[in-house]
Design a protein around this nucleic acid. Structure first.
Lengths: 246, 246
DNA sequence: AAGTGGTCTAGACCACCTT
DNA sequence: AGGTGGTCTAGACCACTTA
């Protein structure tokens, strides 16, 4: 764990967004993605409002936005929870990624210019450097930027938006699970193979490399989560849930 | 307008949802999908609130939800508009459908039971009957149900949710564009070909049929919209009759 | 029966656009 | 400056849960 995170001194940090609900949105989003509010964890409007010195409505708006992103489940008269994720749901996310990103990767092979290929090489070299210097913090953003650079070539911004949302959900888990040993090195090889296929303009090969890439990522994450298991189970308020029938 | 509230059978009753913002959400959603509020059209919170006899907050919540579904664009301090759609955006939607639904269709070929195949046949027979009897109103829901039945076999509910959202966006346009002549008959052939491939368990063939199906749908819709063109352009300074100060 | 916590209202506030 | 219309607050209201 990192040391000395000023616990409450960070109350003045809400200076980024322009409206209040945007700032609350960003704040909660960061808290969820950093794992400070675990999957299945409850988000109480009154609590959050009090903690930030606001009334309840902007908090509600922020929660609605998060629901739109899929990070939060909001049930009428019941409140909000961080989306709980089980193995089937995680598999769904990775299948979506394989299908959608794979399709666009194939398209990209037909329209990548030499300049864009060179840009990919540059990004991947920075990724390599980050792995070698042990700067793990820098890896995930570079990984994401690498793939997004490919997608942008297709001009399908709607698909990119969807994929980014799902990346956020996965990142929310990654914070708890981490990477398996050796995974980062494998990613390097896979990315270079992808660059090679794209450079040849071989869309089918690029899609195959991408599919294998995503499947390995999925298996890796499922294995990590199985190891650090109990966090994932929906939640354990114990006896409460069992009296459902009545 | 504001008068004559009590015996209104005219206003479709808001009796369905359980909370107010849910009912407003459903109402606005229907208005948009039915084309009563055109793409690019403005949604004024105060107007809507007054019209329904509510305060502004539940209306805001409803708009946030619609933004989450992608039907509405909400910009801070600027208000809400129905998402405007140009040709590039529509192409993006159909590419997403081809990629995601095609992938799942391929998966489904491996796990469809004879009973499910028979269910598909039943749905498609009802579709055929609707086309032949000229009941065009019934076609779109049956079409949607046919594809969703296939997708459900894969168990990927998250993907189904995404695809349904995008179907809604397309339906919002369909209301204005309609179908090209003969399109409905072509859809019949394509669906039967899809059933046949699925029955053989030939996922690759099913995906090919699906891809062709979606591409034809995309070209058809783009042609229809090109014919009925000007509606699509973002908007045209029409400050006609809305603001009537007397 | 009381408590917790989500939902709704009325109106003040303020950002942005028009004159 | 004036106006339009989106945003925020405080508190009442009410659904659902706990004793």
């Amino acid at each position: 764990m990192s040391s000395a995170p000023p616990p409450e001194a960070a109350e003045t940090d809400l200076a980024l967004g322009r409206t209040i609900y945007q700032r609350v949105h960003e704040r909660l989003r960061n808290d969820i993605l950093a794992g400070r509010i675990p999957p299945g964890g409850r988000l109480k409007i009154a609590d959050i409002a009090r903690r930030h010195g606001l009334s309840q409505m902007p908090v509600r708006e922020a929660l609605q936005q998060l629901q739109g992103e899929g990070l939060v489940i909001l049930s009428p008269n019941r409140g909000a929870r961080v989306r709980a994720m089980d193995a089937a749901f995680i598999r769904s996310l990775f299948d979506i990624r394989e299908a959608l990103e794979g399709f666009l990767t194939r398209q990209a092979a037909a329209c990548l210019t030499p300049a864009l290929i060179e840009q990919l090489r540059g990004l991947q070299r920075r990724y390599d450097a980050a792995v070698e210097s042990g700067d793990l913090r820098a890896c995930s953003p570079l990984n994401r930027e690498f793939h997004e650079a490919i997608l942008r070539a297709t001009g399908n911004h709607e698909a990119i938006r969807l994929l980014n949302q799902h990346t956020a959900l996965i990142a929310a888990l990654r914070g708890r699970a981490g990477y398996a040993p050796g995974r980062l090195a494998t990613i390097r090889q896979e990315h270079w193979a992808l660059i090679e296929a794209l450079e040849r303009g071989d869309g089918a090969a690029a899609q195959r490399v991408h599919a294998a890439h995503v499947r390995r990522a999925a298996e890796d994450m499922l294995a990590m989560l199985r190891a650090a298991a109990p966090v994932l189970l929906p939640e354990a308020r114990t006896r409460a849930g069992l009296l459902r029938r009545a």
